[in-house]
Design a protein around this nucleic acid. Structure first.
Lengths: 211, 211
DNA sequence: GTCATTCTCCATCAATTGATTGATTGTCTC
DNA sequence: GAGACAATCAATCAATTGATGGAGAATGAC
């Protein structure tokens, strides 16, 4: 049978992906200060020299991790179309996206760690900052659109509001509560916070009872 | 004059404070992964052996930093009385407190760094988590009070709202903008987000022009 | 003065850690 | 089969790093 058991070759990319995955797991477990190239190699099941063959230096390795995270988020974003949806619907889509990332834990923690590192590592900042700016811009656009069509508060500041939304989502994980339940609660609160109070008959996030 | 030039003695506490300050500065500059006991000693102007005389281990040193930060925040919180203030006024006091911390940069960054570290270091978590829980509880209380007296939204969820407020404040620093201007903008947005829309004649944060 | 206590430094250790060298194996091309 | 290339590993290096031992200096008690 065409099993292709272990592609011993032609897997330079494959190896780098494996290395990135192992590095991400270790960063989530121990943070950057506990990241050792030896541990990564061991987790992949290769020699340190082999690790250095695929990724020249530790710095390049951290960059690789940042890129892998960026690729993942990009893919997630492109997965579904925002066409024809209302501002509120798109906002809920953002909530759902983030919730999904949260459920995996690892990506969220590594992103937080990279975010801190970007503060003092220009190479990482170059990868992470645009991601954050893009995300922030997306949310700001949604808020601006909702304000324009009257579904969101007329006095909503889209830029500041985007920080509020993003910050709220992230901060929901700081509490000892069950992460996802806490997130849902904050997401619901964020929705009420941006909604136009003039539109009293609110539309609940889910629950079948249509008025 | 009674100069008391250099108290060569009886300064065990003094030395520990110096060490904590140097460690904080270095953590803010390079993060935990770049923290070296030698660098701390050098910045204080003492030998590594002397550093270890005052702080037995690196782990204890990180704990010392966390405690010094906790003491600082406690002192800041106790500095002014919240007696007789409206919910909105106390909320603005929280904004002002945070803004002040922000202006110093260092405490904010070190707190963020410790917050990440608390995720995997129980000793640090034991110090940091209660701080965060206290802060969150303070904000939640303010929101609950404002909701009760009608100045805040009746559908405001104090717990989730507190995460939104705290997260928003923190997230305001993620943008490349001027930090403090960005913060003020988010703080204003947060105020609008929790305010009771039924009370239309809003009270502006400052600015003399009434109505 | 003597002695104990406190604080400090020089010298040094043992372990860790990122990285390299040189050789080996397997695969593809010709 | 020969040569080229990709991938891997054992062995090892040089530098770093947290930590210690022992000795010296300053201070206060008596």
């Amino acid at each position: 049978m065409t099993a292709a058991p272990e592609p011993t070759r032609r897997d330079t990319d494959h190896r780098r992906i494996e290395i990135a995955a192992a590095a991400r797991a270790l960063i989530a477990e121990r943070g950057f200060e506990g990241l050792r190239t030896r541990d990564i190699a061991e987790r992949v099941g290769i020699n340190i020299a082999t690790l250095h063959y695929h990724v020249p230096s530790k710095e390049a390795l951290v960059e690789l991790v940042a890129q892998s995270l960026r690729d993942e988020f990009t893919a997630q974003y492109l997965r579904q179309s925002r066409e024809g949806l209302s501002a509120l619907e798109v906002l809920r889509l953002e909530f759902a996206d983030f919730r999904e990332t949260l459920a995996g834990r690892e990506a969220f923690i590594v992103m937080a760690e990279l975010s801190e590192r970007a503060r003092r590592d220009p190479r990482i900042a170059e990868i992470i900052r645009p991601m954050q700016a893009f995300w922030h811009g997306q949310i700001a656009d949604i808020l601006a659109r909702g304000r324009a069509d009257g579904s969101f508060r007329p006095d909503l500041d889209p830029i500041a509001g985007a920080s509020m939304v993003i910050g709220g989502m992230i901060a929901s994980q700081r509490l000892p509560d069950d992460s996802l339940a806490g997130f849902d609660r904050v997401a619901a609160e964020l929705e009420r916070a941006v909604r136009n109070p003039a539109l009293k008959p609110l539309t609940p996030p889910k629950s079948g009872s249509s008025s």
